[in-house]
Design a protein around this nucleic acid. Structure first.
Lengths: 384, 384
DNA sequence: GAATGTTAGTAAGCTGTACTAACAAACATG
DNA sequence: CATGTTTGTTAGTACAGCTTACTAACATTC
């Protein structure tokens, strides 16, 4: 009988944990669907939206009226093109009608923020030097750069998105961020109380991969982004959704042992950690000792190979199609990338090289900032 | 302008691809919520369900009436316990009221099927020898074992769940299954047309991890199951949902290169593949050459270590808490497991050993069969 | 230029979902 | 026995999206 009970408990867990759904939530969903479509397709008529969503024209008219009322959508006058039938009225997102604040706390020297409109265009940029601030002082600096941005906004603010280093839970509490001296800092609440706006906080690497998926040139819904700086971190999107580990330690790949031989000493005290192989401090230090270009090239290729070794089991298990590297392009963009790519193809036994793309981010240093934009867009306008 | 367009396209992708939601679908969701709850908690009153789901008693009464009408739920008479107020009428899932057919095509020698009731109890078992059947013959054998099971069912059938080897897409088409000589075999449609029942087909390892998550003793919603037989495959559940690669090649981890030194030759022609290190043929062949117990023990521990090496980057990146091994317990259950566990803890830098569990499946050979049960339960009664 | 057919958008009424309010039945307790 | 609680139901309400039917506006054809 005990075994029977256990079985019941088990099946319940297989069915996804969920809560009630009210009709109103269905409407919110359909509302987002309309916004989504307008984003992707640009200006279109109510009838177009109805055909695309398979909702009726009546329902779409109703939803659009609501969105126009809230200033998220505007009428653009009659369609240019000439067709039989009544001329259609074009509708579009009011891309300049609302703005949001994107915050990047991942810099070594400064906290950066930007005022961005719904269309993803940066309207204003601000920066506040960190000056080695730690703990509460660092929080104050973060609030300062947000205050600055808020003062420069020229339209109603939708919300605030923050990409921060450290281990961050789903409530926006920074469990630990060594570089800023934070332990259990409730960043989300701190910013929300200061500004009265909806705030979303996420780990910088997770946010960077969001940006890559949204603003980068990626077709796939399964992407991994590896960020190489002092440390090494990864962000994973599977099925179009950011993957978050149950204890929020996902992507903390820097101290995985790589290789079955000897390896360089890591600052964590062990040796052959991925971070010890490919972290920026190690790369620059080694390159200084190498004079000839051939030596430097071979070294970078070898270092890249170690990244490939670590990634192979992940790429194969998740059947990933896109791997993106973020970090100093002068170090990673050349031989390092080639070494990583070659090794990855070989060790993951990818037959056709076209099946696996490994490349540098196309967004450069702004990827965290744009990821923060995605946080706000999906949180405030999206489907959740 | 082109860059602006690209941005819009990007943001649209970030918002999850979705379709319209009708009020009726919300009701279906709430209906499943009730079933879920009854599964987990066992018999309870309508008022209990209302409190748990935060839907009103009225709504619950309505949903329960519908479920009773469809024979999924039965009234169990008044509650035993004596409390103030009107005595509650207990209701429960009618666990014997419907049955389903679970099919396991992963065996080396035989196709197996079972008639299982909603409660997860096996009512009948059938088996059909494969006898080396290939291609269409193998399909015929699979249909035969299903016919057999169908004839033995003693209650209305809810549907059919199938766990099959090979690469299987989301439509239930077996893209390729080497051992059965299948290429682009539409197994789902073949079975559906023969039986007229809803059919779900999934890769055997993915199905096995479903079983582990539902019927096994696992708390976590993030699990990886590694199945070691002739080959090596993995199945991943993240956030309680089976992970499926965009090209359905997820979990095909057998031919990832492991280690940075020499390695045994693999049947694929390369060397140091995971399968070459830990596949059953290699393990048994090597063990034959070893006479002393210490040698055998050391060998198995080393072999397990190679599995640990391959798993470390995955476990760290996904922050997994549970790793489950499936395969011959006499080979994997002892020193092999210890070697894998030790290596994994060390190389993934898991501080507290309690944070990562690595163990054998508790369901033994039946894990694919029970996974097929989960397919039907979640497909026909579950959410989404 | 008038007739015809097509398309866009709106108005009215219907169906279905979940809600609140109110009630009777059944029970324990003081 | 009176009182208070709990259960499950009935009646009526709010809201979402539907169908049906309409008007306005347009191109095409005669």
């Amino acid at each position: 009988m005990a075994s029977t009970d256990r079985r019941h408990a088990g099946v319940a867990r297989a069915l996804r944990p969920s809560t009630k759904v009210l009709p109103g939530q269905a409407r919110a969903h359909n509302r987002s669907l309309v916004l989504q479509l307008l984003y992707r397709e640009g200006p279109m008529s109510r009838a177009d939206i109805a055909r695309s969503t398979e909702l009726t024209r009546v329902t779409i008219s109703d939803l659009v009226a609501e969105l126009i009322d809230e200033r998220f959508v505007i009428e653009h006058g009659p369609r240019d093109e000439s067709r039989p039938g009544k001329r259609a009225t074009m509708i579009d997102i009011d891309r300049a009608g609302h703005q949001m604040i994107a915050v990047d706390l991942s810099g070594d020297d400064a906290f950066r923020a930007a005022v961005v409109n719904i269309g993803g265009e940066v309207v204003e940029r601000c920066e506040v030097p960190i000056d080695g601030a730690q703990g509460p002082d660092a929080v104050a600096q973060a609030l300062a750069v947000i205050d600055d941005a808020r003062a420069r906004a020229s339209a109603p603010l939708l919300g605030i998105g923050v990409g921060s280093p450290g281990v961050i839970d789903d409530l926006g509490i920074v469990r630990v961020a060594v570089s800023l001296g934070w332990t259990d800092v409730n960043l989300r609440t701190a910013i929300a109380e200061r500004t009265g706006l909806p705030v979303t906080v996420m780990n910088d690497v997770n946010v960077a991969v969001l940006a890559e998926h949204s603003f980068g040139q990626i077709e796939s819904d399964d992407v991994i982004l590896v960020r190489i700086g002092h440390g090494v971190g990864a962000g994973v999107i599977v099925g179009g959704v950011t993957f978050r580990g149950s204890r929020f330690w996902d992507g903390e790949i820097g101290h995985v042992t790589v290789g079955t031989g000897e390896g360089p000493l890591c600052r964590c005290g062990r040796s052959a950690c991925l971070e010890a192989w490919v972290g920026v401090p190690h790369l620059t230090a080694e390159l200084e000792h190498l004079s000839s270009e051939t030596e430097r090239s071979a070294f970078l290729r070898d270092a890249g190979a170690y990244l490939g070794i670590a990634l192979a089991p992940i790429v194969r298990t998740l059947d990933l199609t896109d791997v993106v590297l973020s970090g100093p392009p002068e170090l990673l963009g050349g031989d390092f990338l080639v070494g990583a790519h070659d090794t990855l193809l070989e060790r993951a036994m990818v037959g056709d090289p076209d099946e696996l793309s490994l490349r540098m981010t196309t967004l450069g240093h702004d990827n965290v900032l744009f990821g923060a934009v995605v946080l706000v867009l999906s949180g405030q306008l999206g489907v959740s």
